[in-house]
């Protein structure tokens, strides 16, 4: 019997919210330390989303974002994104690098590489806390970054899921810097085969 999203009930959705909470909580702490500011987090939003609604869910159309992507292999294979608007990314860089950051919407090589590193640290702390919490093994790839349309970026994370269905579960956690100048989103999109192992490890098998 293959995996089907029908098997996932409210209890499992709550568990996925907790996954998002713990992962993004650790990442927010890492970010808070990095920029010496308080970071607030929203309650994770976990939804079964049809592909036809994904773009609207992400803020629509061809909005341009900074996206950092890691492919995760191991016990919970899946795709991990850290996404920020271009404005948020610039604000974050200013907090880290001060006046060296240019105001134009382009990113210099050093800014690009700083964002890459931030993504690496944040996604790394998200995933390592998830590994600790579940006692499962996760092997993330080196992150890769793109500044482009949100749909073009996130659709790349749907390829594994798209082989079995036209819906995906996105574990979406948003965090905001104290004055809300910086907003970032984590998206974890587990592969279909990840759910059985994840829920079993957490004591709520499907």
């Amino acid at each position: 019997m293959g995996f089907s999203f029908d098997k996932i009930k409210d209890l499992q959705i709550d568990i996925l919210k907790e996954v998002g909470n713990i992962g993004a909580g650790h990442a927010a702490t890492a970010l808070s330390t990095m920029i010496q500011k308080q970071i607030d987090m929203n309650v994770p939003n976990v939804k079964l989303i049809p592909f036809s609604e994904i773009e609207d869910f992400l803020g629509g159309e061809d909005k341009v974002v900074v996206g950092i992507f890691l492919r995760v292999e191991g016990d919970i294979p899946g795709n991990m994104f850290f996404v920020m608007t271009v404005d948020s990314a610039k604000q974050l860089l200013k907090r880290m690098m001060g006046d060296a950051v240019s105001s134009d919407p382009e990113f210099s090589e050093i800014e690009f590489s700083a964002l890459h590193e931030v993504g690496n640290i944040l996604a790394g702390s998200y995933l390592s806390s998830l590994a600790d919490f579940t006692n499962l093994k996760l092997y993330p790839t080196v992150p890769s970054m793109a500044i482009d349309m949100v749909g073009a970026i996130i659709s790349f994370g749907l390829l594994q899921v798209s082989q079995i269905s036209d819906v995906a579960i996105l574990i979406n956690t948003t965090f905001l810097e104290g004055e809300h100048f910086i907003e970032g989103h984590f998206f974890l999109i587990p592969d279909p085969e990840a759910f059985d192992r994840l829920f079993s490890a957490l004591g709520v098998p499907l």
């Binding site: 061809d62 749909g151 970026i153």
Partner: peptide, 16 residues
């Protein structure tokens, strides 16, 4: 599919 004079569009093609 659509006939003239309408337009037809899709957004955010990456690897798609």
């Amino acid at each position: 599919t659509i006939g003239a004079p309408a337009r037809i569009r899709t957004t955010g093609l990456g690897s798609c």
